[in-house]
Nucleic acid binder design. Structure first.
Lengths: 200, 200
DNA sequence: TAAGGCATGTAAGACGTTACATGATTAC
DNA sequence: GTAATCATGTAACGTCTTACATGCCTTA
């Protein structure tokens, strides 16, 4: 859309709109911002702890791969959104990161308002994406697919529950996050039942 | 998780598990697979048409940027999942891509079963991610945030409706996709109401 | 005291975005 | 006929994944 306008206008428009670019450097990615939030939430912590939290999440969005997190936190430090000092556990060296005042400001800005355009979207749901093309599958494959999807949603519900048990006690917003997961999973299940009815 | 096992085991494990790697080349990305699906659905078409459909989607997942789509379809052709021939509209040259038998097989494999692990996840919802850290915001910011999020969900509902009007007539699965969007948006709205109550 | 997982990283590469370029076509 | 937009790309860049490397530390 932005692209379909004249090039010159687009360039000006992009830079001008939505405050995507902060004064210094480009806008933070979702992963960078989320990491910032985790450091705020956990207090001073090592990249490994951040990774553990991500991997415990029911969302595969946050893979918490080392190759992403270590350089990312270094980047955030270079931008003075995090600060770090060396620490150790026994003989093992760690680096402990804490959030700075600027980091907190950046976190608040990311949360919004304003919400960036990309946040005004339906969620990304890999089951929905696949269902769109079920017409390309054989009837047998469709039935099996629905069965698998039901199982998947059951496992997801369990993951949400487990996450709630482990981390939901943090603050009231963490509890609301779980609640979102519950309501959403319920909605997806009802949807899948409708799909099964239509095809059954 | 996979990473936390011994390295050698991890390597074998990754390659062995879930059929992520096809005999030739690596697994298709979500975008590649989705593109394959669109070409199947639209019939022979140009990259530009694919992009138009993506940009019309209520999901910002599918940005449909030129720099992604043109090389991507070329890649799929190199792997014989698409085939193309030059065509023209008036004086303007186009390249028209159709799906091959191998492409259809790859599409079916992507749809599953089996569903890959990454598909067994809560959806990615930028509003939920942000809500998690509302504790870092001031009470005033929180109230404003909720207001903005409500507006966002309203706009999303409209987008889903509009999409349904334009494309929902295609086949029954497209209709189910819209239905998913409706149910999900409804769930998110109810969730947001709970959030407002808790904080209000 | 050896095995295995814990914890901390780095290097190379793939993928997608942003920005740019350019000719064809349409609207006025 | 000229300005805007359509349509088709390409190039550079940043981010994240995958794969690898390497010491610590626990436990049997």
């Amino acid at each position: 859309m932005a692209e379909s306008t004249a090039n010159q206008a687009a360039r000006k428009g992009r830079r001008g709109s939505a405050g995507l670019n902060t004064k210094r450097g480009r806008a933070l990615s979702e992963l960078e911002s989320f990491t910032l939030g985790l450091v705020w939430q956990l207090g001073p912590c090592s990249p490994y702890e951040v990774r553990r939290h991500m991997r415990a999440s029911p969302s595969s969005q946050w893979s918490g791969s080392a190759g992403a997190i270590y350089p990312l936190m270094r980047r955030l430090e270079k931008r003075k959104l995090l600060e770090s000092k060396p620490a150790r556990t026994g003989k093992r060296a760690r680096r402990e990161y804490g959030i700075t005042a600027g980091g907190l400001a950046a976190l608040r800005q990311w949360i919004g308002p304003p919400l960036p355009e990309e946040a005004v979207t339906v969620t990304y749901d890999p089951l929905r994406s696949r269902a769109r093309f079920l017409g390309a599958a054989t009837p047998a494959q469709r039935r099996q697919w629905i069965g698998e999807a039901e199982e998947a949603l059951e496992r997801i519900a369990e993951m949400v529950e487990k996450w709630q048990a482990s981390f939901g006690g943090g603050d009231e917003f963490l509890r609301l996050v779980t609640r979102n997961g519950e309501l959403e999973t319920e909605a997806r299940r009802r949807w899948l039942m409708e799909v099964a009815e239509r095809l059954g």
